[in-house]
């Protein structure tokens, strides 16, 4: 029997934490927003979600097969990416565009860099920006995420929609970004499950609100309308908090949130695009390795004498 004993280094027990469990939690946390999207934008929202998730998973599966890598779709991270892309698209997007965006996110942004954990920017955010730029001139569905057929509050100038409608999502926009209530429910779930902490989303959303407040001469209602519009909540809660591309420490996450908030408002107020959340997150993704260095924890007992 002796030669049957397993030998391994300590620790010999492990918590129930796993990448798959994390991804499942994120999927669960996105369901309220997906359901809200289906209610607000109808059955076509479900089609877009199905297409994006299906394409994302299939892309990763096929990529792994082609390059002879160990299969990784069972960690469900491709499902999360597909779901996030779909929730960032308008319900009337042509199916082929949704497919191109999903393939781009998984193959170019994630798999080319080595798969989960190795990508330097968030696949879903990068796909959103890619599509925003690539499909603007297509004329098909008037793609720009924040300028769907019915104008979004941001492009129409915030405050044209009531604050309650902004909170519940009764207005134009991407499938999953309009219902702030559903996004907050998902965020609370993620924090309760300890998948994320409050630091980054609160710093991000808080900065956008306060900075906007200053720029709109302290008109709280207008600042609130800007805060509730566009992709801020879905970006701050679900996309900026992506482990791979956000800082590890709480201090770093707050710094990320602050800077992303400032960039968002700058683009919204002074830039060419009505929406700046995606660009802000993308830029901060790139800065993350440096933030990680600046905000690493103080080593206890590490002072060199």
């Amino acid at each position: 029997m002796d030669n049957m004993l397993h030998i391994s280094a300590a620790p010999h027990i492990h918590s129930s934490h796993s990448t798959r469990r994390v991804m499942l939690d994120v999927i669960i946390s996105l369901l309220p927003a997906a359901i809200a999207g289906a209610i607000i934008f109808g059955a076509r929202a479900l089609l877009v979600i199905g297409v994006c998730v299906g394409t994302a998973v299939l892309s990763e599966f096929l990529f792994n097969v082609i390059v002879k890598k160990e299969q990784s779709v069972d960690d469900f991270s491709a499902v999360v990416t597909g779901l996030l892309i779909a929730l960032n698209l308008p319900a009337n997007i042509p199916v082929w565009q949704a497919i191109v965006g999903s393939v781009f996110a998984i193959v170019v942004v994630k798999c080319f860099f080595g798969g989960i954990g190795k990508n330097i920017v968030n696949p879903a955010i990068t796909a959103r920006v890619f599509m925003l730029i690539a499909f603007t001139q297509m004329g098909t569905a008037a793609f720009p995420v924040d300028a769907v057929s019915s104008a979004t509050p941001l492009s129409a100038g915030a405050a044209s929609t009531s604050l309650l409608d902004l909170f519940l999502g009764n207005h134009g926009g991407a499938i999953g970004e309009t219902c702030t209530l559903a996004l907050i429910i998902g965020g609370v779930y993620l924090i309760a499950r300890r998948v994320i902490t409050w630091h980054l989303p609160v710093a991000f959303i808080g900065t956008v609100f306060l900075f906007t407040l200053v720029l709109v001469d302290f008109n709280a209602a207008t600042a609130l309308a800007y805060t509730l519009s566009g992709g801020l909540f879905i970006g701050a809660i679900f996309m900026a908090t992506d482990y791979v591309t956000s800082p590890a420490t709480w201090g770093g996450q707050i710094l990320f949130g602050l800077l992303a908030g400032v960039i968002t408002v700058m683009i919204r107020m002074f830039g060419n695009y009505p929406e700046g959340v995606s660009f802000a997150i993308l830029l901060m993704n790139i800065l993350t390795p440096y933030i990680d260095i600046w905000t690493s924890r103080k080593i206890i007992g590490g002072d060199r004498k």
Partner: peptide, 16 residues
């Protein structure tokens, strides 16, 4: 599986 950079290792280390 691949490290997903969640930061839990550094955030939990007693010595930082």
């Amino acid at each position: 599986t691949n490290c997903i950079r969640c930061g839990s290792c550094t955030n939990l280390c007693p010595f930082g």
